[in-house]
């Protein structure tokens, strides 16, 4: 998983919410889809749609090696009045400094304590953690902090969404 691409996604989401766009497109990959699903579950966005560069698909389209380059995920952005629901999206682990926390440290972070200079989890804040997966054929899985603690074991703290 590329932290650079995740960083690009964070910057992109901040940019589009600051200019009040209704929808935005992000690349179609497993990492992007996992992050988008967490944003949707936590209520940061209104919708996740499959689509191409031209817009969301009106009919189901098969994803093949021929059209994968033009495939996109379309996210419906959420606003309360004129304010965006997403205020800040930032990386915690950086490509130059990856932060992997063990189970106890993750619990401390969730309990509202500062761990390794990571500021504690605030109410209505989402922290995504990369953990080893039990699913076949995949090497990792992105979970939110509570799920990662429930799963047990250590995890790389990826980003936080306010």
């Amino acid at each position: 998983m590329s932290l650079t691409r995740l960083g690009n996604l964070c910057a992109h989401l901040q940019n589009v919410t600051r200019v009040n766009l209704a929808t935005t497109a992000i690349p179609y990959s497993r990492m992007h889809l996992e992050v988008a699903s967490h944003l949707y579950k936590q209520g940061f966005i209104t919708s996740v749609q499959k689509g191409s560069l031209n817009g969301p698909d009106l009919k189901p389209v098969d994803v093949t090696p021929d059209n994968i380059a033009s495939r996109r995920l379309w996210l419906g952005l959420k606003y309360r009045g004129t304010d965006s629901v997403i205020r800040k999206v930032s990386l915690i682990s950086k490509p130059s400094r990856r932060i992997i926390l063990d189970h106890d440290q993750l619990k401390l972070l969730a309990a509202g304590k500062s761990v390794r200079e990571i500021k504690p989890l605030q109410p209505s804040e989402l922290v995504l953690v990369k953990v080893d997966t039990t699913k076949r054929n995949f090497s990792y899985e992105i979970l939110d902090l509570a799920e990662a603690i429930e799963r047990g074991g250590s995890g790389e703290v990826l980003c936080r969404i306010k």
Binding site: S29, L33, V63, P65, D66
Partner: peptide, 18 residues
């Protein structure tokens, strides 16, 4: 569902004919 997408492969590989 979103989870069903995440469980399977995101892309369909080319068939032999393709």
């Amino acid at each position: 569902t979103l989870s069903s997408y995440l469980d399977g492969p995101l892309m369909r590989q080319r068939t032999k004919e393709e």
